[in-house]
Design a protein around this nucleic acid. Structure first.
Length: 582
DNA sequence: GCCGTTTTCGGCCCGACTGTTTTCAGTCG
């Protein structure tokens, strides 16, 4: 942003969220408050700078923005704030809004704490609790004070989201333990943000179906790994595990399974919008089904919910985009990549470098997944810590691959490499060596902290190289860890599209790189992608499903993913087998 | 404050748990 103090989309969203919180505490109409929140969410979702929308005079075309909010946005962009926000900020200290982040504190209690006790921040709240000042307030009993104290502690203890891969594994383990103790479970699945493949997860939402829900709840609440039960009813139990992670189980009879899974998968706005469709039909939708005039229509399968409202089924990772429902209603939802589309894995490691499986073991695991070929891409010698391969060991490896191919035909193992892009931008192996391979995946592992220009130039050099077919994990980021290099991604997309070099969605849940927004931008720029596991053990091939999740969040069509192609078609697409500009 | 397959006015998602003012408000997912 050029001008100083310029408000970007996130800033605009933040201003309206702040306004909504403060007005809610003040006791304003909840519909008005919801309107500001809805506008804030629209600003977050805008595909272009809000300043550009304003310049075209199209602010009121943004969903949830009418004349009143449009005028406030204009003031905000011109002066950094607007009258109503200034007014309410002068009336209520902004720190009071922070109280809303504490479990069991909503707008009413935040106002009560501020008015009665002068609590203006989380620190003030802690102090008031320590001094026992919450107990005597009318309208806030000792029980509520205790829950608020617990909520404040849990906020400080568990204010973290887990990487998807960790949360997913933990959720599956929890489900396995629960199944042992509750054999009456007919169906059970991780829902919520895990099912939508968000890259980080704040809690586990578990949907289950059983004839006797209370028995399942009982088994869940008495698991040894439970630290604290937050609430419990006949169909539902929310608790905190000993590691501090929250888990929420909902159980209904199997005839409600579809609507329960739909409800728990969300996201919230997706759920609400379909419920609004139910209202438009003179009824209402809940986790039990569609009810109108005392009659309940239960939904046993999730697709039944969509079908009832005349919608195409929407894959969970696509549900966070409001456009999905509009398109599904017109029968125009685009096809996106599914796990079943994948015919190969083009990035995996064996015991020739830092993997744990042999070439044969990896090939057998891939064949068991239904793949028809793989590329073995062990590290090149420059990554010495990973026992990287030079020309001589590559020739030895070729002999082993030939033997496996002779045994497993028609399954086919390609010999590839994960080629280091050195700190100075040169590639780690000479062209003759690369030309002897079937496929080359290049990667920037080192020097990610170099400046934008230098690190971008290294990646561009790899993309332009006539023997490089794929750029692996293009940003180098680690989920919940390092941010990755400061690449000029727009330049990378353009050059990858021009040269026909594929960009990878590395499906290792610690990487997920490209991430969803990047993959979407890359496809829009005309790039071809790959979805690869980067597996280092045979079981790691299953991580491909996490990459498919990223692709679905990015609305990637299957025909833009290189490893959906049959082997012959893939080979024909490689630069080395075409005559192309270099 | 927004918005239109009931509507330009009068609606705005649903159900459940907790604690308590014991008939329901507040909070949550």
């Amino acid at each position: 942003m050029a001008e100083q103090g310029q408000i970007d989309n996130r800033g605009a969203a933040g201003a309206f969220r702040r306004l909504a919180d403060l007005l809610e505490i003040r006791g304003e109409s909840l519909y008005r408050v919801a309107a500001y929140r809805r506008a804030a969410e629209s600003f977050d979702r805008l595909a272009e700078p809000i300043t550009a929308v304003r310049a075209r005079g199209e602010l009121e075309d943004i969903p949830g923005v009418g004349t009143a909010i449009a005028r406030k946005v204009e003031d905000l962009l011109d002066s950094g704030s607007f009258d109503l926000l200034r007014e309410v900020e002068a009336e209520i200290p902004p720190g009071v809004a922070a109280l809303l982040s504490v479990p069991d504190i909503g707008p009413k209690r935040a106002r009560l704490l501020y008015r009665e006790l002068g609590v203006e921040s989380l620190e003030d709240l802690r102090e008031a609790l320590d001094q026992g000042r919450l107990d005597p307030i009318p309208g806030l009993g000792a029980g509520a004070a205790r829950r608020i104290a617990e909520g404040l502690n849990s906020l400080q203890a568990t204010d973290e989201r887990l990487p998807l891969g960790v949360a997913h594994a933990r959720g599956l383990a929890l489900i396995a333990r629960l199944r042992e103790r509750a054999p009456g479970i007919r169906r059970i699945e991780l829902a919520g943000s895990v099912r939508r493949h968000r890259e980080t997860v704040g809690d586990l939402d578990i949907a289950a179906a059983a004839d006797d829900p209370a028995a399942v709840v009982e088994a869940f609440a008495t698991l040894p790994e439970v630290a604290n039960i937050e609430l419990r009813g006949p169909n539902r139990c929310r608790l905190v595990l000993v590691d501090g992670f929250p888990a929420d189980l909902w159980v209904l009879p199997e005839r409600h399974w579809g609507s329960l899974l739909f409800h728990l998968t969300g996201d919230k706005h997706h759920d609400i919008r379909v419920r609004e469709m139910a209202v438009a039909r003179g009824g209402r939708l809940s986790e039990y089904g569609f009810s109108a005039g005392g009659d309940l229509t239960p939904f046993a399968e999730e697709e039944d919910v969509y079908a009832f409202f005349g919608l195409q089924p929407i894959p969970p990772p696509m549900r966070e985009d409001p456009a999905a429902l509009d398109l599904a209603g017109r029968g125009a939802l685009p096809e996106v990549l599914e796990v079943e589309h994948l015919r190969a894995d083009l990035h995996l490691h064996t015991d020739w470098s830092d993997g744990k499986g042999t070439v044969r073991e990896m090939a057998l695991a891939a064949r068991a997944r239904g793949y028809s070929y793989i590329a073995v891409t062990d590290h090149s010698r420059g990554l010495a810590v990973a026992n990287g391969l030079g020309p001589e060991r590559l020739r030895e490896q070729r002999a082993e691959i030939d033997a496996v191919n002779a045994e497993l035909a028609p399954f086919r193992v390609l010999q590839g490499i994960e080629l280091e892009v050195r700190g100075d931008g040169r590639l780690d192996l000479d062209d003759d060596t690369l030309a002897a391979l079937d496929l080359v995946v290049a990667a920037v592992h080192s020097g990610l902290r170099q400046g934008r220009e230098r690190v971008t130039e290294r990646a561009l050099a790899a993309i332009r190289h006539p023997l490089v077919d794929v750029l692996a994990h293009p940003t180098g980021r680690i989920v919940g860890g390092r941010a990755g290099g400061d690449f000029d991604l727009v330049a990378l997309y353009a050059e990858a599209a021009r040269t026909g070099t594929a960009l990878e969605i590395d499906a290792d849940p610690a990487r997920l790189d490209l991430r969803d927004v990047h993959a979407r931008a890359a496809v829009a720029a005309g790039c071809t992608l790959t979805v690869d596991s980067d597996a280092h053990v045979p079981g790691g091939l299953a991580n491909a499903s996490f990459g498919v999740g990223v692709a679905q969040r990015a609305w990637v069509p299957p025909d833009r993913v290189l490893n959906t192609l049959p082997l012959d078609a893939l080979l024909g697409r490689l630069k080395r087998n075409r005559s192309l500009p270099s």
